[in-house]
Amino acid sequence: MSGAQPVIVLDKVCKNFGAFRALINVSLSVSKGEKLVVCGPSGSGKSTMIRCINRLEEHDGGHIIVNGHELTKDSRNIDAVRREVGMVFQNFNLFPHLTVIKNLMLAPRLVRHKNKDEARAVAMKYLERVRIPNQADKYPSQLSGGQQQRVAIARALCMNPEIMLFDEPTSALDPEMIAEVLDVMTDLARDGMTMVCVTHEMGFARSVADKIVFMDAGEIVEAATPEAFFTKPQTERARQFLSQILAH
């Protein structure tokens, strides 16, 4: 995959919450089809970084360019980026008042102006892909956490995104449900989707990622192939993190 044109570029991105420096000169580039896993201790800025990519957070300094659109205050660019970037959240964030199928149809109808039948057809296609077509008419609260997260992935896919962001997609799940979500994500990776995942699932990282980025205290401390990162981490901080997380 190396050598393909970058679809996400972060150049010296900074973000402060009051006096707290959440991101300090973060630079990064992701090529088309690349799978990037971001890890690091809690509070290291990994969620903030991924949320800057579709401007759920506004960065204070530096540049972010996604699919050729630079993220600025210009709302047209923000809209363009959000249309091309799908996101999956830790807490699923499914709309509780809509059935599963309506959760999936909402954005295609409102944003892509698809008609009802088109939107439904697309929604069913992706529900089948995440292996729960039979839950289409249930409300999110009637599903298990793993099922809800798979619906959330399907919902993002319905917008036909070129890039998918995952913000700790398995952290809110019971252990027995993590695998079903990771399986769907692995399928997606195999199909060539460009993915940025914040996750602690090191097994997934090892088998799927092209590159691992390790963050601590708002900075990218290390960026390497999974192979290199897991066998010979370059920094003490990464070694410490790995020993803690792999001890479990």
């Binding site: 579709n54 401007r55 759920l56 809209d79 959000r82 249309r83 970037v85 799908g86 996101m87 959240f89 807490n91 964030n93 499914l94 709309f95 509780p96 909402l106 954005a107 409102l110 944003v111 959330a152 919902r155 993002a156 917008m159 962001l165």
Partner: peptide
Amino acid sequence: GLTEAGKALGL
């Protein structure tokens, strides 16, 4: 989180 999900979907 629900409004954020809406934002992320481009609403």
